[in-house]
């Protein structure tokens, strides 16, 4: 068939297809029409029609493709559905890394805790005296921070700090973990050591009550989420380091999509943690409420983590 004949025969269908691509939702016969355009392109190529015609049909195929295969856009329902169903599944597939990260975090913070408890002066090796004074002021039951009434705008300020800082750290750990785990391990271990050492220091000072009643509730979400983000980053980096039977290019793609629900889950948990930390934890109510709510959340999180890593539910 001559090219002019071919064009004359199909020209109308091509223009119709172009308008079809702009319609939303796409008409029911769209996939059929798309396949016909594809076959037109194949014909034009094998018959060596002119480059311009081939290029035009190529554009049409790309246009149709972008309509036919368009992805869903981001939304809260999507994030929630990932959190509900894909997050536990990912916990199961990455369970070794989750357990390793949990052990590393709590193990190192316990070591730090007992170390500082046995030799309190050792903390000055790691934290500057100014910083320690600030921390001591914050949790001093007679100090300004504990006795002053927290106002609403201070709560909002702290909410911003927690969102920006904590979720930023989690994302950093995940992303930088791709660099052979280093970017995830260092912040994870640093935070664990810091947390253990500061806890011991506070206990040493005798400020247990304000400190633990403050951290217990949001700690359940926050610390676990940070550990999960670290584990996700570590898995990415470790698989890149030792890809097994796959090529490195392929393993990155495979692992990347595997661990993505973990970081989405950690994100949701950290948003919840930021709300609790900013608006619940500083409330001026008897500590017993905070301890009971905190304990319930810890039990819940531990249970979810167990069923996730054990059964994927």
């Amino acid at each position: 068939m001559k090219q002019n004949q071919f064009v004359k025969l199909h020209k109308q269908r091509w223009t119709e297809f172009e308008t079809m691509c702009t319609e939303s939702p796409a008409p029911a016969n769209f996939p059929l029409e798309y396949r016909r355009i594809c076959s037109d392109l194949a014909l034009a190529k094998t018959r060596h029609y002119s480059p311009a015609l081939v290029a035009n049909l190529n554009d049409l195929v790309k246009l149709g493709q972008s309509v036919l295969y368009s992805g869903e856009s981001i939304g809260f329902t999507r994030i929630w559905s990932i959190f509900k169903s894909e997050f536990p599944k990912a916990l199961y597939t990455c369970r070794n890394f989750i357990w390793a990260a949990l052990t590393a975090f709590w193990g190192l913070s316990l070591i730090a805790f007992f170390w500082i408890q046995n030799s309190p002066d050792a903390i000055y090796h790691f934290v500057s005296p100014d910083q320690l004074n600030d921390i001591a002021d914050m949790y001093n039951p007679a100090g300004a921070v504990q006795t002053d009434k927290r106002t609403m705008d201070a709560d909002v300020l702290m909410f911003g700090v927690y969102i920006y800082n904590n979720i930023g750290i989690a994302f950093q750990m995940f992303g930088a973990g791709a660099l052979f785990c280093i970017g995830a391990l260092i912040p994870l271990l640093f935070n664990s050591f810091y947390f253990g050492a500061i806890s011991a220091y506070i206990v040493e000072l005798g400020y247990n009550e304000p400190f633990f009643s403050f951290v217990i509730t949001h700690g359940s979400f926050e610390l676990t989420a940070i550990i999960i983000a670290g584990a996700a980053g570590c898995k990415l980096g470790f698989d890149l380091l030792s890809p097994g039977k796959y090529s490195r290019a392929y393993i990155m793609k495979k692992t990347g999509l595997e661990v993505l629900p973990l970081i989405v889950g950690a994100f949701v948990m950290l948003v919840v943690a930021a709300f609790i930390e900013a608006f619940w934890s500083p409330l001026n109510i008897p500590s017993v409420y905070k301890y009971s709510v905190g304990s319930i959340l810890w039990i819940l999180i531990s249970y979810k983590l167990y069923t996730g890593t054990r059964y994927g539910t």
Partner: peptide, 13 residues
């Protein structure tokens, strides 16, 4: 004020 700084940090994130 303070609340503004908090909202700014959330927006920045």
């Amino acid at each position: 004020g303070k609340a503004g700084t908090g909202l700014f940090l959330v927006t920045y994130f």
